[in-house]
C-alpha cells in the first residue's frame, strides 16, 4: 500500500492535490482513499491531505502515521510544530520539499533519516492567484515519484477534479502538473510501497485521555477576555508586510483602522505591526498612501522575530 501526505497552507490546493492523485491512481486500477484534514482554520493556516492507494481493498482508516511519501508545498511550514510535517517519516520514507533552497541544506538542517529531495522554485510566489496551482504541481510530482501513474491518468485526474472550473483552469493546472511530472522523471518509482499494518502493530494516536467530569469541571466558564491573543495566527503568513519608517508619514488611522485583524497598533503616533498575529493579507500595503509598506516572503523560520 502507498501512503502519501501533502502538507501546505489553506489556499495552496493541498486538498485538490490529494483529489487529483487519488483520481489518477483510481483510474490506474488502485483502490484509493483520500481525505483533507483541517479544522476551523482558514486560508494560510497549516493543513494536510492524504492518500492511500493499494491493489487490494484498504481496511486502514484515519490519519497516515508512517508515510512513504511526504510532499511539502510551503517550506516555511517545516519548523512549525503544529503542522506536523515530519510526523512518522522514517528511513523508508521520501520527503519532497518545494523550496528555493538546495536539498543539501535541508538534509543538514533536518538531519532526518528519510531521503530528502527538493522541487526547486526559482522565484518567490508573490502573485497569490497562482497559489492553488501548487496543488497540481505536488500531485504531478507525487504521481511520478510513485512511478505507477501514467501521464494520461494524471491528466484525467486533473480533468475529473477541475473540469467544472473551465478549460482555462484545467489547462493551467495541467501545465504545472506535467512540468513537475517531467522534473521528477529521474526519480520515477523512488517511492516504495509499505506493507499492511497488522492490527497488533497498530499504535493508537497520542491523544490525551480525559476522564469524564461534570460540565463545570470539563468545560469551565471562562471569564478571561481576549484569550484569542494566545493563538499565533502569524504562523499563517507567507508574505510579511514591513513598514519603512523613513517613508511612513504616521497616518496610522489608515493602516491601523483598515487592518482586518486589528493587528496594527499605534505607538507614539506610529503604526506597529504585531507579527504574532498578522496573517499577511497585505491590505496595509495596498492602502498605505506613501507606499511605505513592502512585502517579503517569509523565511523558513517565520516566528523567529516574535521571540
Amino acid at each position: 500500500m502507498y501512503r502519501i501526505r501533502f502538507h501546505g497552507r489553506g489556499g495552496q490546493g493541498m486538498k485538490t492535490a490529494s483529489r487529483i492523485l487519488g483520481s489518477a491512481l483510481f483510474s490506474t486500477g488502485f483502490e484509493v482513499q483520500d481525505a483533507p484534514r483541517y479544522g476551523a482554520e482558514r486560508r494560510g493556516a497549516p493543513i494536510f491531505a492524504y492518500v492511500r492507494a493499494s491493489r487490494a481493498p484498504i481496511d486502514e482508516r484515519g490519519v497516515i502515521q508512517r508515510p512513504d511519501l511526504v510532499l511539502v508545498a510551503d517550506d516555511s511550514l517545516i519548523p512549525v510544530p503544529a503542522a506536523g510535517v515530519l510526523a512518522g517519516i522514517d528511513a523508508h520514507g521520501l520527503l519532497l520539499i518545494r523550496s528555493a533552497e538546495p536539498a543539501e541544506r535541508w538534509r543538514e538542517r533536518l538531519n532526518a533519516a528519510a531521503r530528502v529531495i527538493v522541487l526547486p522554485i526559482t522565484e518567490p510566489l508573490l502573485d497569490r492567484a497562482a497559489l492553488p496551482q501548487v496543488g497540481a504541481t505536488c500531485a504531478g510530482a507525487a504521481a511520478r515519484l510513485l512511478g505507477v501513474v501514467p501521464a494520461e491518468a494524471l491528466a484525467a485526474g486533473i480533468e475529473a477534479e477541475l473540469g467544472g472550473l473551465g478549460a482555462r483552469v484545467v489547462e493551467r493546472n495541467l501545465a504545472e502538473a506535467m512540468a513537475a511530472y517531467q522534473a521528477m522523471a529521474p526519480l520515477a518509482g523512488a517511492v516504495s510501497e509499505d506493507g499492511e499494518i497488522a492490527a497488533t502493530d497498530y499504535h493508537p494516536p497520542d491523544w490525551v485521555d480525559l476522564p469524564f467530569e461534570t460540565a463545570r469541571v470539563s468545560a469551565p466558564a471562562i471569564h478571561a477576555a481576549l484569550t484569542s491573543e494566545l493563538v499565533d495566527t502569524g504562523l499563517w503568513r507567507s508574505l510579511r508586510p514591513e513598514i519603512d519608517y523613513d517613508l511612513c508619514k504616521g497616518c496610522w488611522w489608515v493602516c491601523s483602522s483598515l487592518c482586518p485583524d486589528g493587528a496594527i497598533h499605534v505607538e507614539n503616533g506610529r503604526p506597529v505591526i504585531d507579527y504574532d498575529h498578522c496573517k499577511g493579507c497585505l491590505v496595509c500595503l495596498a492602502v498605505c498612501p506613501p507606499h511605505a509598506i513592502s512585502a517579503h516572503t517569509e523565511a523558513v523560520t517565520p516566528c523567529a522575530e516574535s521571540s
Partner: peptide
Amino acid sequence: LGTGTPMCAGC
C-alpha cells in the same frame, strides 16, 4: 477586539 481569530486573512 482581540487578535488571533480564525477569520480568513483579508476578511
